[in-house]
């Protein structure tokens, strides 16, 4: 069901990963993603995997929870793997009909799949351990220098945080509308693609109207609470780097540098 989507979900906790400064988490996650694409040899992957598993362990997030987050993307991951196996030239490992799977293809596929799963896990870890508002705060502060270039940093951050706030509400609402229309005989599951697209109208129209109504009411409620944009705004949380951030940074810098060095050395 729609309710099972875990996108943007946050699991409150008090581990050192939870307590890290969101800015540091954002910087390290970004660095991790970059290094993941730089990495080449098996050894590099092992190093990054070790980094990732240490972080997962420290955050006390269960592996099964992470798997749930990866699951919706399994189709895309399998497709990528399949295409890589079929279209990488090299020594044939398996042949049937007009299709050939090569050893090189299998190797590339494994590499691609690990890379994607490690990428998703890393970002999931960030959202699982950081409350969306804190994350937005961190992003806003990191991007602050861009304000001088007239980038509306606060507004963008506010948009992101409200979007995250309303994801569960709208999912619940969509679920309700689907059931209500089904009760009138709507059929969302069978028929041609064209028919199915048309069948979505009874869902999409009410959902849009409700979104407008919510936006309208939310705007008034925000004005009533004296919202007037980012100017002069303070925050419940003052972001401060602590010793945890320093340790995390040093640990990560060492691992990431090692990966880059391995790449340069061609190992």
């Amino acid at each position: 069901m729609l309710k099972d989507i875990t996108l943007g979900q946050y699991f409150p906790g008090t581990t050192s990963i939870h307590r890290m400064d969101p800015r540091m988490k954002l910087i390290l996650t970004t660095a991790y993603i970059v290094v993941l694409f730089v990495a080449k040899g098996i050894l590099s992957y092992m190093l990054l995997l070790a980094w990732l598993l240490t972080t997962v362990r420290l955050s006390r997030i269960k592996i099964s929870v992470i798997f749930r987050g990866v699951r919706p993307l399994l189709f895309i991951i399998s497709l990528t793997a399949l295409l890589n196996m079929l279209y990488t030239p090299g020594r044939p490992a398996l042949e049937f009909w007009i299709l050939t799977i090569t050893y090189e293809g299998i190797f590339v596929a494994i590499k691609m799949v690990s890379r994607i799963i490690m990428l998703i896990t890393g970002t999931l870890l960030l959202t699982y351990t950081t409350s969306p508002i804190v994350l937005t705060d961190g992003l806003e502060q990191l991007l602050n220098p861009l304000k001088k270039l007239r980038v509306p940093v606060h507004e963008l951050a506010m948009m992101m945080s409200i979007a995250l706030r309303f994801i569960p509400t709208l999912i619940e609402e969509a679920d309700k509308i689907i059931n209500a229309q089904k009760a009138r005989g709507a059929d969302f599951e069978t028929g041609s693609i064209f028919k199915r697209a048309k069948a979505l109208i009874p869902l999409l129209v009410p959902l849009f109207i409700s979104a407008f109504r919510r936006a309208d009411e939310l705007a008034i409620a925000m004005e009533c609470r004296c919202y007037r944009g980012g100017e002069g705004r303070t925050s419940l949380r003052q972001l401060k780097y602590s010793s945890i951030d320093l340790k995390a940074m040093l640990f990560s810098v060492i691992v990431f540098t090692a990966v880059i060095v391995l790449r340069v050395l061609g190992i």
Binding site: I177, A180, Q181, R184, I201, V205, I209
Partner: peptide
Amino acid sequence: FQYPEHQLFEDTVYKDIAFGPSN
């Protein structure tokens, strides 16, 4: 359902009431 008016979607009341019977 509760608050059933939230599921109205057609451009006329007539068409909306007709949704069930047409299905």
